[in-house]
Design a protein around this nucleic acid. Structure first.
Lengths: 146, 146
DNA sequence: GAGGAAATGATAACGAGGCGCATTCGCGCG
DNA sequence: CGCGCGAATGCGCCTCGTTATCATTTCCTC
């Protein structure tokens, strides 16, 4: 879905009357290529390592912009570092597990969980726009040698 | 349950061979009195306003200690600020809604959600120790005048 | 092309949180 | 009742992620 997301992102940015600068484009491509959770600094470093240095300010600005346009999902894994990933509009939705030992982040999807959350949002006096579920514990590798 | 929690906290701290200093005690009381989510700085400021200034280091150390002893639950509401609240050991478990407009945090509980998460932890190659569910959106007050 | 607005880059500022060390204080023991 | 050990506290400094500032460059439009 990467190319698809990239197209959608371009369209959304154009629709918002924004221009396509070099730095933003690189961040977009990198996000699309990664697909999974990436922190702002991982993005900055990866791009720098590829010989395409992008200013830190541009990376953060781009991520903030994409977040406002709902093109990326922001996930706070609880270490004080924000992570981002391309938002999936295909109806498929997934969440994350964070390993307390090695910090590894895995993804999972569960219809039952989604259904439960949907029902909750009907029941509460609260308009749920987004929901983040973060499970913390030990991943398969770390659980063995706890 | 506040007094109850306070007692339990005292017992746990004593059991760990720790002493009861003035600063820690104040943080404990404030947490118990608040009951709900509080950030480290809110605690620090509240105590200072009450004429009981506690060093920032002490507040953080106390919270870290309580977290290790599973006496407080740490919840990251996604603004880069960690929030804490007394852990409820009565089996009752609740989660939070965060309003994107006013930042208000409400709590809710849902058995179906808990059950879904339990089943997920059985299914995944991941030992789930804790889980945080944060719903973001607009609270009843803000939804009206969005 | 020329103009103007948006985008970018470099850097400083900011805020949460952690660390180290000197000092204080609680608590058990003689 | 004092003594002393070690935990607890406070203070200041530092790190690090993130955001704001501002001059400069770049991209669209006409």
């Amino acid at each position: 879905m990467s190319e698809h997301w990239l197209e959608r992102a371009h369209a959304a940015l154009r629709a918002a009357g924004l221009r396509s600068g070099g730095g933003r484009e690189l961040v977009l491509e990198e996000l699309a290529a990664a697909g999974c959770l990436r922190s702002a600094q991982e993005l900055e470093r990866t791009l720098a390592d590829q010989g395409k240095p992008v200013s830190r300010a541009t990376v953060y600005r781009t991520l903030e912009l994409l977040h406002e346009l709902a093109l990326v999902q922001r996930v706070d894994t609880g270490n004080g570092v924000a992570h981002f990933e391309p938002a999936d509009h295909s109806g498929e939705h997934h969440h994350h597990t964070v390993c307390d030992r090695c910090g590894r982040v895995l993804t999972f999807a569960d219809e039952e969980l989604e259904a439960a959350i949907d029902r909750i949002s009907d029941r509460l006096p609260f308009a749920v726009h987004r929901h983040d579920v973060v499970l913390r514990g030990a991943c398969a590798d770390c659980a063995g040698r706890a």
